[in-house]
């Protein structure tokens, strides 16, 4: 029963990676390259832009994941309680889940760019006189707009996973902790948070991987220099000069390696029980 799925994933995913691996060692018979070497990796790692791009993408992923998971934790704890408007937020969370990232990115662009809605509000409030006086939040070196997009998109994602996880936590644990003398903060810190940790870690790993590797969001909101790594990698792959192709493949392999580290972490957290409830 597993065979078709293994065939599809193995056939597409692994052969894709495998081909990149071959090419990254500069093995391209069609171009007359038949002696594998590490030249492409050397070129990539010594190129000035690469490490900056890598650093930028790691910054984007780290900042987005930390902010989004913190806010999502708060939102999940808030949504867990019954109050007016709870249903509306849950509904909006689910709606948000369906909105493609590219739409979010354009929405954020129109909201926070120097001529965007916030800049207009600042102008109306007399804070700025011209668009250029508004702080650059898009195409900026700190990738604020990109991070904003991920936070906007991933808070509902992590939040819904945490809510599902919260529902499986028995209320007796909290009651027991309270009766043992823990205050509300201590109950959260020592009971709820540890119980939520596997779900939070798994969701965070998915978010980190996505924020690190997505292409279209930095394409829309990112600066030209430094470029986020996925944008740099794809640009290098589609460059007219075929000689840089091995470098593009080498970048893909570097990205895959970082993904593999995440996969290993995810496996430790989410597949620890190794059994039927792996999801």
């Amino acid at each position: 029963m597993l065979a078709p799925a293994l065939l599809v994933l193995g056939g597409l995913f692994l052969t894709g990676l495998g081909l990149s691996l071959l090419r990254s060692f500069r093995y391209i018979p069609a171009l007359g390259l038949t002696d594998p070497d590490l030249g492409a990796y050397a070129a990539v790692l010594t190129a000035p832009g690469f490490l900056t791009s890598l650093g930028l993408s790691l910054w984007i992923a780290t900042a987005s994941t930390l902010i989004a998971s913190t806010l999502a934790l708060g939102a999940a704890l808030l949504l867990r309680q019954t109050f007016t408007g709870r249903a509306i937020i849950s509904f909006l969370f689910q709606i948000n889940l369906t909105i493609p990232h590219v739409v979010g990115a354009v929405g954020i662009l129109y909201l926070v760019s120097q001529s965007g809605s916030f800049a207009r509000l600042a102008h109306a409030g007399g804070l700025i006189g011209a668009p250029s006086e508004f702080p650059p939040l898009t195409h900026d070196p700190f990738a604020i707009g990109i991070i904003l997009t991920y936070v906007w998109k991933e808070v509902p994602f992590i939040g819904l996973i945490l809510l599902a996880s919260l529902q499986s936590i028995r209320p007796e644990h909290e009651a027991a902790a309270r009766s043992l003398g823990a205050n509300r903060w201590q109950v959260f810190r020592h009971v709820l948070l540890p119980l939520l940790m596997p779900a939070l870690a798994a969701a965070s790993a998915l978010v980190f991987a996505f924020a690190f590797g997505a292409y279209e969001i930095p394409l829309i909101l990112g600066a030209h220099a430094p470029e986020a790594l996925p944008v740099a990698a794809w640009r290098s792959f589609t460059a007219i000069d075929l000689a840089t192709r091995p470098q593009a493949h080498a970048m893909a392999i570097v990205i895959a390696l970082i993904g593999a580290v995440l996969l290993a972490l995810y496996a430790r957290v989410a597949l620890r029980k190794g059994g039927r409830d792996a999801v």
Partner: peptide, 14 residues
Amino acid sequence: IAPALIPAIAIAPG
């Protein structure tokens, strides 16, 4: 799970 954690950009060229 791998395709969810290894970004598409890593396999797109291959």
